[in-house]
Design a protein around this nucleic acid. Structure first.
Lengths: 123, 123
DNA sequence: TATACTGTAATAGTTAACTAATACAGTAGT
DNA sequence: ACTACTGTATTAGTTAACTATTACAGTATA
């Protein structure tokens, strides 16, 4: 896994698992790999993984059970809400950034369409 | 100015001035406030400002002149290119994030339009 | 009950970003 | 020349994120 050195690793790990959960590669109630397995797989320290999972539990997306493992919540609403949150954050960021560059509402849509088209070609 | 504690301050300062330049509030060839003035205005240390400006000079968006000040480049192309870069970065981020959430090309555009509409209402 | 998994906690050390303070160097107006 | 601006450099100290290591605590299974 590649990390952006401008953002905390624990934060990026959290985001990564959130994606996995939302997309369904980690189903509701599914068991996550052990903290030690994750640490090895991502070549980071156990403590860093722990910090990411701790935040995920605070946000009630996973539940930790000592001796057993970490499990994705069974609450579908929680996951759906999480998905909407992530999307909103991204849209907000794009919107404010482009607005700060004096790009109007129509311009944003046009830019996005152009970008999508450009990606389609380069595949 | 408000800083995102997840990103380095010097980086956010750089981004801030890039916006000011692109939008034209800092014209081509214009003189920036002195590093000490900026530091006071943003309530950060002079060294942090210095680091931001140093990167801006490396990227040839400004030129520093000892004893005189920092000046925006006269090169229009440089600024236009910078603007495109910033836009691309944002579009890429949105695209990859939404793609990671299993949202297709059409979905992205729809989401953005919805978001823009939502912002229009809350103003 | 021993063994091997789990999560969790604590300690110590490293690094990057940032602050604070001081000093130095170039420019300009008096 | 003096003064007051500029940018630049250096040193020292703080903090957050991260690593490394060790230990502890709960669970499951042979």
């Amino acid at each position: 896994m590649e990390f952006d050195d401008k953002l905390p690793i624990y934060y990026q790990i959290k985001q990564y698992f959130y994606h996995e959960i939302i997309v369904g590669r980690l189903a509701l109630g599914a068991k996550l790999p052990s903290v030690r397995q994750i640490a090895v797989a991502l070549t980071v320290n156990v403590n860093t993984v722990q910090r990411a999972l701790a935040e995920m539990e605070t946000e009630k997306v996973i539940t930790s059970q000592r001796g057993k493992g970490n499990f994705v919540t069974e609450d579908v609403q929680r996951v759906l809400k999480l998905k909407e949150q992530l999307i909103q954050v991204q849209l907000k960021q794009l919107y404010e950034e482009l607005k700060a560059l004096n790009i109007g509402d129509d311009g944003m849509v046009t830019y996005l369409k152009q970008y999508i088209e450009m990606r389609r070609e380069n595949d």
